[in-house]
């Protein structure tokens, strides 16, 4: 059962990301990407990592994609002319995919594969996750966080130069 759900969710994920690439309107693209992140989060839950699933929704769907939407709306990147054809036709794939994701979520919650798994339950708690992250993979986490810091400093520097007298 779990593997059927896994492949179904992967199919939804791939379709949503492909549709995201082929959208002309950036707002529609963002919505498809959010749908993709949501199905990815459910896949993480299915694989026994509820914490990673929660972070996926909080960080990617809840914060980064909202930031994308903010930028798109602020810069007015959405095309002004309305495309041809009735609205429901353009939105049909989105509605179908969303319904599929919700149905999968419902099935997974009702069956709870983590609880009915054979042998050891494979759900990874917050504590195990933290121990792995800051024990076994501590060096990798440090390196990545330093890279993020460099990126933040670089972005700040670029912004500061452009805001000055126009020339670096």
């Amino acid at each position: 059962m779990a593997s059927i759900m896994f492949y179904l969710l992967s199919l939804i994920l791939l379709t949503a990301t492909l549709l995201c690439i082929f959208q002309r309107n950036p707002v529609h693209a963002v919505l498809y990407l959010v749908l993709g992140f949501f199905s990815l989060a459910i896949m993480f839950y299915l694989l026994g990592a509820p914490l990673v699933a929660a972070w996926e929704v909080i960080v990617y769907a809840g914060a980064i994609m909202v930031l994308f939407l903010f930028i798109i709306m602020m810069l007015g990147l959405a095309p002004q002319d309305r495309p041809e054809g009735p609205g429901w036709q353009r939105w049909l794939p989105f509605v179908i995919l969303m319904a599929a994701v919700l149905a999968c979520t419902l099935v997974i919650i009702a069956l709870d594969p983590a609880a009915t798994a054979q042998g050891e339950p494979y759900s990874l708690g917050p504590q195990d996750f933290g121990e792995a992250l800051f024990g076994k993979y501590a060096l990798a986490v440090q390196v990545v966080s330093f890279q993020l810091l460099f990126a933040a400093v670089g972005a700040y520097n670029l912004g500061r130069i452009q805001r000055g007298k126009g020339k670096p």
């Binding site: 929660a54 909080i58 809840g62 909202v66 939407l69 903010f70």
Partner: peptide, 25 residues
């Protein structure tokens, strides 16, 4: 009772923004 209960709240609080942003857009 989820073992990631508070993160669940944060996740859905984050998703609530889409309603407002999409309504505006």
């Amino acid at each position: 009772d989820l073992n990631v209960g508070v993160l669940y709240i944060l996740a859905f609080a984050g998703l609530g923004v889409y309603g407002i942003v999409l309504a505006g857009w």
